[in-house]
């Protein structure tokens, strides 16, 4: 691999943009294709599939064996609410290689003492999200404040960005009211139906740490959807 190609791949990853490296396994020849340039490429259909699935693999084309290294942005988790559950969830999610950001405008909650070693933004979601790389398909968002003023704008942004996981804390009754508000805000029923609520896999979680496990398991189940043996 040429050093300038390696640098370009690292730059694109840092900017959260997907790329595919095409390598001729016979002679080592390589080129890098950005998602925005894929349409005009001779391998366009194959590349489009790969960008969707995120899976690397070999393709035979024009008598050549080409290896496609698919580099999609690293998965990240945006947590709305610097609450007790988040204190347990942030380090657990980091341990599974998720890039974690916690957002909460309530400065009594969003303190570095409560959240060491994690990106913490003591801002309203709209302001905080404007400071981060845009929400995308490789982002999970968990809204945990119970406060519609804080949770709703973040949920709307994540649903519009087609984030791979969108979860919201609250009972069925709370969620019923949320559905009404999001409908009034102009979201389609299919979009709203993507929200995991009540949040988390049903493992009977009681403590904040147990709820964090159930949320994190649900995030991973969404991330690895295509590998699961049975629906959870």
């Amino acid at each position: 691999m040429k050093l300038d190609i390696l640098r370009e791949m690292n730059r694109e990853r840092a900017a959260r943009r997907a790329v595919i490296l095409v390598t001729d396994t016979a002679d080592g020849g390589q080129r890098l294709v950005r998602e925005t340039e894929a349409e005009g490429d001779p391998l366009a259909a194959e590349l489009a599939d790969r960008f969707r699935s995120g899976r690397s693999g070999t393709v035979e084309a024009e008598g050549r064996s080409l290896f496609l290294t698919v580099q999609v942005p690293p998965p990240r988790l945006v947590v709305i609410g610097a609450v007790h559950i988040s204190q347990a969830l942030a380090p657990m999610a980091q341990a599974t290689d998720l890039d974690v950001t916690v957002i909460d405008p309530r400065t009594a909650f969003a303190t570095p003492e409560r959240f060491p070693d994690v990106t913490l933004l003591p801002l309203w979601p709209d302001d905080a999200l404007a400071q981060l790389p845009p929400l995308d398909r490789y982002t999970a968002l968990a809204a945990l404040t119970h406060d519609p003023k804080i949770d709703d704008p973040a949920l709307i942004a994540a649903l519009k960005a087609e984030s791979f996981y969108v979860g919201a804390l609250g009972s069925r009754k709370t969620h019923g009211k949320r559905v009404e508000r999001l409908t009034a805000a102009g979201l389609a029923p299919e979009q709203i139906a993507r929200i995991a609520a009540p949040i988390g896999l049903d493992i009977g979680a009681v403590s904040p740490a147990e709820i964090a496990v159930s949320v994190l398991a649900q995030v991973i189940a969404s991330l690895r959807q295509d590998r699961r043996r049975a629906p959870a």
Partner: peptide, 17 residues
């Protein structure tokens, strides 16, 4: 610490540099 693909390719660049 476990290394992710991010660390690996970034480290390759740092080693070359």
């Amino acid at each position: 610490m476990l290394s992710t693909d991010t660390d690996i390719l970034a480290t390759a660049e740092a080693w070359r540099d």
